[in-house]
């Protein structure tokens, strides 16, 4: 068994206290070298901390006119923003897709090969709408017509005749076409 003695400090033993209080800090080794170099150069500035304010960025309001001679721009209060085609053309963002036209079956309504169609999947596909239909695994743009049980996919070009969708065919409506983007240049 080891015996534990209550150890007592001998008065006056150990290192003499500093006049100014000190604090030991840990530094990564590579920094010690750097620190000593800086100290040797006399470049080490005590209290050389960087004020946090110089590091944070300030967001400048987008809409702000300079106040000159006490008169703010009278137009500031009347800003209505700019026109955004996205908000004009797209009503349901999550359900809206773009597709590219390859065929000429719809030229009669101004849909030409190479045009881009805006398709909204959330709209109901009532008879008469121009839709993207999936027929036997292929996507096609046609006018959707429904009378009773009969489903017709109608092209808008005299070169082609309407497709009558029979019951055993694999058929579904992918989405409703809302706009066509046709370049003129």
């Amino acid at each position: 068994m080891t015996q534990h003695h209550q150890r007592k400090r001998r008065p006056g033993a150990g290192r003499k206290p500093n006049l100014v209080p000190t604090k030991a800090i840990r530094l990564p080794l590579p920094l010690v070298k750097q620190l000593l170099e800086l100290k040797a150069k006399g470049a080490l500035e005590v209290n050389g901390t960087i004020p946090a304010s110089t590091l944070s960025s300030v967001a400048i309001p987008l809409f702000e006119s300079r106040v000159q001679a006490g008169f703010p721009s009278p137009a500031d209060d009347f800003s209505e923003g700019t026109l955004d085609l996205n908000t004009y053309l797209i009503k349901h963002k999550a359900a809206t897709f773009f597709v590219r036209v390859t065929g000429d079956s719809m030229t009669g309504v101004g849909i030409f090969p190479g045009d881009i169609l805006i398709v909204d999947r959330s709209l109901p596909h009532s008879s008469g709408k121009i839709v993207i239909a999936v027929l036997n695994g292929e996507m096609t743009v046609k006018r959707f017509k429904q009378a009773g049980d009969e489903v017709l996919l109608c092209p808008e070009n005299d070169k082609y005749s309407p497709i009558c969708v029979s019951e055993d065919e694999d058929f579904s409506i992918w989405g409703v076409v809302t706009n066509v983007i046709h370049p003129l240049l």
Binding site: F97, R100, V101, E138, M139, V141
Partner: peptide, 13 residues
């Protein structure tokens, strides 16, 4: 990239 590249949109006939 069906939804992110104008040149790769789905094609419809």
């Amino acid at each position: 990239s069906f939804t992110q590249d104008w040149t790769q949109l789905p094609r419809v006939r």
